[in-house]
Amino acid sequence: MGPIIPLFEISEEINLLIAFLIGLGFGFALEQAGFSSSRKLAGMFYGYDITVLKVFFTAAITAMLGLLFMNYLGMIDMSIVYVNEYFMSSAIVGGVIMGAGFIIGGFCPGTSVCAAAIGKIDAMYFIGGSLIGILLFGQTYPLWEHLHNAQQLGSLKLSDTLGLPDGLLGLIVIVAAVGMFWIGEMAEKRFKREDISKEI
C-alpha cells in the first residue's frame, strides 16, 4: 500500500533521488506542453491560447481520479497523503498577489524554471524577481506574520466542506472542466491570433 516512502520508511537519499526523477517528469511534461513560453501562458488570459487551462485541469483531474481509484482499490492510505493546510486570509491574499504576478511576469515559479532551462531570458529574470520577492517577504516577515498565520482551518478538504462524497465532487469537477475545455476551444477560435501563435 502507498504512499511507499513514508510507509516503508525508505531512506532520505532514495527519497531525494525520487524527488529528482519526479522533477524530471514534471519538467519534461511542462516543456512539452509549451509552458516554457510566456506568451503561450499569457494566451490563457486573452483567449488566443488556452493551453494552460487544458494542461492544468487535465493533470489535476488525472491525478485526482488516480487517487480516487487507488484509494478504492486499497492501494493508498489517503490519511498519510499531504493535504494543504488552509489559512483562509493568507491563501486568498497570497493568491491575488500571485495572480497579479502571473499576468505581469508571464510565468509561475514552476514554468519559469522550465523555460529558463531552454534558454528563455525573460524566465531567468522572472526567477531572479522571485528570489527578490521571497527575500522581501522574509525581511518584512514581522509585518505579515499575523496575516500569514490567521484563520488556520487545518487540512480541510473541499468535499468535506461541501458535505459531498469525494467521488461525487470529482465528477462535478470533471464536468466543470469538460465544459471549460469546450468554451475555451470556442474562445481560441474567436480570439485567434495567428501572428502570436506562429511565433510561440
Binding site: I97, M98, G105, G106, F126, G133, I134
Partner: peptide, 12 residues
C-alpha cells in the same frame, strides 16, 4: 512579476 509571485507564494 517574479517578485510578486515570489512574495505571494510565501504568503499563500
Amino acid at each position: 512579476g517574479g517578485a510578486l509571485f515570489g512574495f505571494g507564494s510565501q504568503l499563500g
